Amino acid sequence: MAFLRALLTAFIFVSAAPAARGAEIVDLLLVLAADVSRSIDEPKFQLQRDGYASALKDPRVLDAIMSGANRRIAICFVEWSGATAQKVIIDWTLIDGANAARKFSDALVEAPRPFADRTSISGAIDFSVEQLARAPFQSQRRTIDISGDGTHNSGRGLLSAREDALALGVTINGLVILSDRPLAWNPEHTNPPGGLAKYFQDNVIGGPGAFVAVAENFQSFGQALIGKLIAEIALAPKTPVNRLAATR
C-alpha cells in the first residue's frame, strides 16, 4: 500500500508538470506541516498556531519574500497527527506582501483544531508531497517544513517516506520543539536518546541545504520559526540559531 501511494504521488508529479509550466511562477512552494498530535495539549497548540500566524507577517519574513527574483512565494498550511490524520487548513496561497500575509495569518488563527492523534511523520511527508504535486503555482524550489515535538510512531516507515520525497526533488526541513519534561506515558517520544533535534537530523530532513531549527519550548516557537522561514525563503548564507545541517 505504501509503495502504491508513493508510485501514485510520483505519477501525479509527472502528470502535473505540463500544467505547472503555464502556472504563475513563484520563488518557493512551501508546505508548512504542523504537528497536532496528542502530546501537544491545547495551550501548546495555541502557542504553535499563534507562532505561525505572527511569523508569517513579521517584517523580516516579508523582506525575505521580497528579496526573491519574483518577489512572491506560495504557502500551503497543513496540520497532521496519526497515519490517516492530515488536513489542509489553508490551501495554496500567494504571499506577495503584507496584505496577503495578514489575510493568511488571520485565517489561520480562526481555523479550528482538526484532531489529536498519534505522530505519523511519514504521513505528514506523504500528504505534503501530494499538496506540492497539485500546487497551482510553479517553482524550482519545493520545500516541506515539518514542525513537531516528538518521534515518529505511526504509519509507514519514516525513512521510506523521506527517500520517496527526496527522489522527487523535494527538500524537507524540520523545526523541533523541545519539551521541558518528558511525557509520563512515553518519555522517549519527546526526549529520544541523543535529543529530538538529532532524531530529526537523522530521520526526517533531507535535500539541498536541509536543516533542523530548534525551539527551546513552545513559548519560543514563534521566534525560532521566524529565523527558519527567513533561511528557507531567502536561502540566506547565515543560518538560524540552533540550526543543524543535514548530513546527507
Rank of each mutant, 00 (worst) to 15 (best):
A98N: 12
A98H: 12
N99Y: 09
N99S: 14
N99L: 04
N99H: 14
A100V: 09
A101K: 07
R102P: 00
D106I: 03
E110R: 05
A111E: 05
P112K: 04
P114N: 03
A116V: 03
A116P: 00
D117N: 14
R118S: 09
R118E: 14
R118Q: 06
T119S: 10
T119V: 07
T119D: 15
S120C: 15
S120Y: 12
S120G: 13
S122I: 10
S122N: 09
A124R: 13
I125K: 05
D126V: 12
F127S: 10
S128M: 06
L132V: 09
A133G: 15
A133D: 07
A133Y: 06
R134K: 15
A135Y: 09
P136W: 13
P136Q: 14
P136M: 12
Q138F: 09
Q138M: 10
R142F: 11
R142E: 13
I146R: 03
S147D: 14
G148K: 02
G148T: 11
G150L: 08
S154G: 06
S154E: 10
S154V: 12
G155W: 06
G157T: 12
L158D: 06
L159E: 14
S160V: 11
R162F: 05
D164G: 06
L166D: 04
L168Y: 14
L168N: 09
G169D: 12
G169E: 09
V170P: 04
V170T: 12
T171A: 02
I172A: 02
L175R: 00
L175F: 00
L175H: 11
I177G: 02
A184V: 04
A184P: 04
W185D: 09
P187V: 12
P187I: 08
E188G: 08
E188Q: 08
H189W: 11
T190R: 00
N191V: 12
P192Y: 03
P192A: 13
A197V: 02
